[in-house]
């Protein structure tokens, strides 16, 4: 039973960042901007906020510091996503190329700056954020050990973001307009929606969530940030596609991918899995292969936003 609780706790560490970042990508893609820059945004957000943790660890600690760091991560993610938005909306650039540029820029910038400041590319921080046990809730049998012991507030943040995303996307005027811009920007424009503004909004939201996701990924797994989020940005892109660009399916996809990641990471410690004789690599590649298979079989009636990746030009109505 201890192993099971451990696995669930681990799974949350892998799932929640995927969930947050994929939801971010959802806002951008539903507004019509392809966002392969998620990896770069995560790295930049994680870099700025870990730098913040490192600089402030002498004065503050605990949940307050983590909350401030999350704000820093959100702000820095939004900042770098502006680059992508500017290229994609104003410059009508190829969005994949612009995203690739950001993916290359973010780690290069992070390593360069870290080496200038610290001499090495790793940035350390002190992890004072782990909650041993949430009062009351942690004592509930079964559910308590799974979700409310040895956890981080970021886990709950992920689910709060999920709820808010769902409401914003489906229950508000803003969400409806955003989706319209991704499906048929010309029609949206004809009824007075500012397509450029909506696309900026979508991309900036993806930047905010991407930046937060970067920090959320780093905090539980390491105390040394090494200018990398281990391909989680691209995995989040896969989650987004697997989840059909919709919030609730994205949650299931993130859980599935998180489970696979947990199995490949905790594999050697679980006798049951070792006895199956499946090589570790299988768990590592299943998320990617599964995405390929799903794409192949759903392409005929794909739920991808129709105007995704097409620059909007007012003159072409």
């Amino acid at each position: 039973m201890e192993t099971f609780y451990y696995l669930v706790q681990q799974m949350m560490f892998f799932t929640v960042p995927l969930l947050i970042v994929a939801l971010g990508g959802m806002f951008s893609e539903r507004s019509g901007i392809v966002n392969v820059a998620l990896e770069g945004i995560m790295i930049f957000g994680a870099f700025c906020s870990v730098l913040f943790l490192n600089f402030t660890q002498d004065f503050i600690s605990g949940q307050f510091q983590l909350l401030l760091a999350l704000l820093v991560a959100a702000a820095s993610g939004a900042l770098i996503s502006l680059l992508h938005a500017y290229a994609s909306v104003n410059m009508r650039a190829n969005q994949v190329i612009s995203g690739t540029a950001i993916n290359l820029l973010a780690p290069a910038f992070a390593i360069y700056t870290a080496r200038i400041i610290f001499g090495v590319q790793q940035i350390g921080f002190v992890n004072t954020f782990r909650i041993a046990k949430v009062p009351i809730l942690g004592d509930i049998p079964f559910i308590g050990p799974m979700f409310f012991q040895k956890c981080y507030i970021t886990t709950y943040l992920g689910f709060i973001i999920l709820a808010i995303s769902y409401v914003v996307l489906y229950k508000t005027r803003f969400g409806l307009r955003l989706r319209a811009c991704g499906e048929h920007p010309q029609a949206a424009d004809s009824v007075g929606i500012n397509v450029y503004k909506m696309r900026y909004a979508g991309t900036i939201i993806s930047g905010i969530l991407g930046g937060i996701g970067g920090l959320v990924f780093i905090v539980p797994v390491t105390t040394q940030f090494n200018a990398s989020v281990a391909g989680y940005g691209f995995l989040a892109l896969a989650v987004l596609i697997f989840g059909n660009w919709k919030p609730i399916p994205i949650l299931w996809a993130a859980l599935f991918f998180g489970m696979m990641k947990t199995l490949s990471a905790a594999y050697s410690g679980i006798p049951f899995l070792l006895n199956l004789g499946i090589p570790n690599v299988v768990f590592k590649v299943i998320p990617y292969i599964a995405t390929l298979v799903v794409l192949a079989f759903t392409s005929k009636n794909s739920a991808a936003p129709r105007a995704e990746g097409v620059p909007y030009d007012k003159g072409q109505r």
């Binding site: 690739t100 950001i102 820029l105 290069a108 080496r115």
Partner: peptide
């Protein structure tokens, strides 16, 4: 005493501007 990653910064900036070639 500069980090060599400055070259990666330069090359990623070049791609970004190449994407914005319209400008």
């Amino acid at each position: 005493s500069f980090a060599p990653e400055i070259v990666d910064v330069i090359s990623s900036t070049i791609i970004y501007f190449a994407a914005c070639s319209l400008m």
